[in-house]
Design a protein around this nucleic acid. Structure first.
Lengths: 344, 344
DNA sequence: CAACATCATGGAAACGTTTCCAGAAAAGGG
DNA sequence: CCCTTTTCTGGAAACGTTTCCATGATGTTG
């Protein structure tokens, strides 16, 4: 159907090698011939086939990108960053969603391998490790947003992450600075194999500030609306003495807002809320939500640079850590005194 | 580097044709040989190369998907739907962002063509028409969310759309039913070449209900936060007699909420707000926003089915129209009487 | 047991490129 | 004007598959 290099060569009365040189830019072609070839190509609506080229050059110009859910604002931003960078690098992007499911991760990784992508960018589930197989085959692999906890895989694979620990720390310091002593934490999966960086940071920050940390203060949820809601409701009901809640993502953040509304807790008068991920609605909520912003787009961009450049080993300084930023809005206030709470 | 079919054949002591048969499933292979081949493949960590296969079979198994912005919740949902369907169909997805820019659309289309995707799904900007070139080359093309207005391209290309006109109509009927007579409309680009379906529907719905429609009631904005905000601010200030606003997207919807807050308008007491696109924060806002939901995910799914199946011509019933749904929440109330407004 | 259908297999020719190589033509130097 | 570079060009061999075809080995049927 589509014209091939042979058709163009025949039509222009030259050899296929010459046509190839015209289009690939390599080698010298006289201006006259070039023009003739170009004209023939235009006539035939010829477009070099990437698959022919890929076969010969052994580069497809494609990057594999796997995220749990493109619908998640953080993931979407990462994708946007990757797309942005890939475009400037002349690469294209194969996107797939893993839903955080190891089985689907494996499928996706398989497909990327079969497609012979030039590099892979993955936001790993952390359970199992289908991705590390790429390092064996010499395909650049870069983790984003998270590194798998498994010792074998995550070791020296390049990664681009937000400095979550620092972000959590700044949020905790902010809350404690406002006088809060009983701060709840809405965190990641319950018996999650990977120890949660953020939960650890939360505990560390509190103890560093001399605030005793009670195991009862943290509730964990899977990354779904329902699970987050259940966790938030559970936490807020069992610990009605909480004066602040820190949500480790926008899902638990949303849940906290909803549950607070349900329980008729005024924000921030009765309960201060802060969350990780400064997504669009944080500003729209009433009151606007204080949030720790992760530079998702930059993360994607940097990761894509690494993957395309063929970075195959983590730098000496470890994974690339991008700074977070605490965006203070109206959802956190001074801790209510005991009297205030009693009155309410 | 990676093992090829030849390596496997040699290692298993068979011909490459046999190896091919084992992996492609076509043709008969004795159980014994199959086992031997599989074992050899496992040993060598062999994975058939999609590029070799594509060259021969002339199918890449890839679908091109172009949306203006993956970060936009509607687009993200469309992408999720496409991904979902593609997976069940065993296709992969090349994603790119166009930013609604015709020049970038052309680049993306070019790349898809070069990559020899099996089908293309595009959410077109409507200006220019880089996509229709695919119908000439026989590559299935499906529009989503919108069809380009240009007569030449959009004619018979399959499309999957939300029934926007109906959605707008139901929202307008709802507002007018609440007693609103002066309803503002926040619509699409100003002198947009494509006549805006939604704006037309808005005018039609009002006149059908016997409510006079004033050109002054509609404000238009480009799809950016700033532009939407400016339009909303302009509209609400110049027409302080408005009792309701209908936003034709989540961006103008967001702007309306913000501007109302800025102007100290109580929602819905002073101003009712409704918008198109029922995105996550609509429920989080205070009051929760009434919205017209477009089944974005389904749109993506259906479009992918069509593209993969190779639908190359629009059905006799025109584009696939998926129903919208009016989600009533708390942001719309009865139109304030003149007295109420005066008092405020 | 002959004749024949079926099955399992390997060789070889595509598919559309790039690139090495060698030859021809043009350009430059004496 | 001849010899040496340089520039331009085409043939042919990859790249990793699938698939057509021919061949030999099994079964099957009368």
């Amino acid at each position: 159907m589509a014209a091939t290099i042979k058709d163009v060569a025949a039509s222009a009365g030259v050899g296929i090698a010459t046509v190839s040189r015209v289009f690939s830019g390599a080698g010298a072609v006289s201006p006259a011939t070039r023009e003739r070839v170009l004209a023939a190509a235009r006539d035939l609506d010829y477009r070099p086939s990437a698959v022919g080229r890929s076969l010969k050059t052994r580069r497809t110009g494609g990057l594999g990108l796997a995220v749990p859910d493109v619908t998640d604002p953080f993931c979407a931003d990462v994708v946007a960053g990757v797309l942005d960078c890939a475009r400037t690098l002349g690469q294209h992007v194969l996107l797939d969603a893993t839903l955080g499911d190891p089985a689907r991760e494996a499928e996706v990784a398989d497909r990327f391998a079969e497609q012979r992508v030039d590099g892979v960018i993955a936001l790993p589930s952390g359970i199992g490790d289908p991705w590390s197989s790429f390092v064996r085959t010499g395909v650049p692999l870069v983790y984003v947003g998270r590194v798998p906890s498994c010792r074998d895989g995550g070791g020296t694979v390049p990664a681009v992450l937000a400095d979550d620990a620092d972000g959590i720390r700044s949020a905790v310091e902010y809350l404690v600075g406002l006088g809060h002593r009983r701060v709840g934490f809405l965190g990641a999966p319950a018996p999650g194999t990977p120890p949660d960086v953020r939960e650890d940071a939360f505990r560390a920050a509190l103890t560093a500030l001399g605030v005793p940390v009670d195991d009862d203060l943290v509730a964990r949820a899977r990354p779904t609306r329902d699970s987050a809601y259940a966790a938030a409701a559970g936490l807020l009901q069992r610990r009605s003495d909480l004066t602040a809640v820190l949500a480790s993502g926008h899902l638990p953040g949303e849940a906290a807002v909803l549950v607070a509304r349900e329980l008729d807790l005024r924000v921030p008068a009765d309960l201060s809320i802060a969350m990780v991920d400064d997504i669009a609605w944080a500003e729209l909520a009433d009151p606007p939500l204080t949030a720790v912003n992760r530079p998702a787009r930059d993360i994607g961009y940097r990761a894509c640079e690494l993957a395309a450049r063929g970075a195959t080993r983590r730098g000496p300084s470890g994974p690339v850590l991008l700074p977070t930023e605490l965006i203070v809005r109206g959802s956190c206030g001074p801790a209510p005194s005991r009297r205030d709470r009693a009155r309410h």
